[in-house]
Design a protein around this nucleic acid. Sequence first.
DNA 1: ATAGTTGTGGAGTAATTGCTCTATAATATA
DNA 2: TATATTATAGAGCAATTACTCCACAACTAT
Lengths: 194, 194
Amino acid sequence: MARPQIFNQDTVIDKALDVFWQKGFGGASTKDLINAAGISNGSFFNSFGDKKALYLKCLQKYDTVYITALENLLIAPLKFKEKIKNVLLEATKKSPGKDTYEGCFFFNTSIDSSVDDAGILGLADAIHQRIEKAFVSAVDMAKEAGEISKDIDSTRLAQYLFNIVNGLRALLLNSPPQSTINNIINTTLDLLPS
Amino acid sequence: MARPQIFNQDTVIDKALDVFWQKGFGGASTKDLINAAGISNGSFFNSFGDKKALYLKCLQKYDTVYITALENLLIAPLKFKEKIKNVLLEATKKSPGKDTYEGCFFFNTSIDSSVDDAGILGLADAIHQRIEKAFVSAVDMAKEAGEISKDIDSTRLAQYLFNIVNGLRALLLNSPPQSTINNIINTTLDLLPS
DNA sequence: ATAGTTGTGGAGTAATTGCTCTATAATATA
DNA sequence: TATATTATAGAGCAATTACTCCACAACTAT
């Protein structure tokens, strides 16, 4: 009936995610994206609409894959402190094979001043709430298990912990010494309420 | 001997700082800067060299004025907890007259992926160390005053506190509800070691 | 084979970018 | 008043941007 697409959409989104992740929305040119994906200009715009729409798809994919992984860490059947430790270590690990920190595409989006699309900002906000909710679940589980006092306000502690992760995300952008990261993580764990 | 400059350099830097602060390095076009300063294209490049050099001057000014203010808060003769509270409140206050959060030009610089100039990055790094050092001083003062244990590693606690401020800086970029800010600040203060 | 439909490649476009160049204006000194 | 010196205004430029347009390719159903 019609000529079939020569490329795999999902693969292109993965490649685009890499480029956006590295360079940000404004820093990634359409040429960068097209080159990375290995498709033609025509196919690019024909299939994805425009740069913003593709970025949104990348963020959706990130939501599905990476945020889900974070969520799983937070609802894992482990001790509270252990769980938080895992989250902090996961957030500050290096990219596989490389010597740079992996970072977080959601965080990068939320601080990227070149992102002004309502759809993208809306999804970023939804992801923010999703993560916060996952932290709340972790705190609630800790309460149930008697690991921390039931008097603690779950939302408050969740927002506090999320904030520490975000501080680390910002720090990571400037390739800090590992000792700084360790200091922050260890102090956070030491100060965790009981 | 020669035609005098019609404008005040320091005023132009202030105006440029405003524009860069709002839009970031890449987001602020030379046209934006020139319009805000109210000078001509020729004068702009003749006096400041290029965009990067002007940005550096803005960051230097920020260092001198705002970072010094933060430093003063941290070495003020107040109780440790009081001091940290002041720093957190100062970091999260709204712009005078406006309904948006003021933010931090240094922080914005450190997360701005469109900044790639070695001089700017170098100064940002120096400011980072300056702030960390100020936090260390605050912790040391608290130890001397017997407010917290001398067993605490000053650098570790300083980096932890700085990290919380940076998390808030990132959060502020998305105009969060005041309750979230309060929750993070109050939890941080509650968990402060003794 | 042919018609119908959709994908592909790549030349082309209008707008914007940071910055240069030059004619001229304004000043201090001689 | 003439000269030397620097500032100003703004036209202009090469490069890049996101994106459009269209001739043509590739496929399926008839």
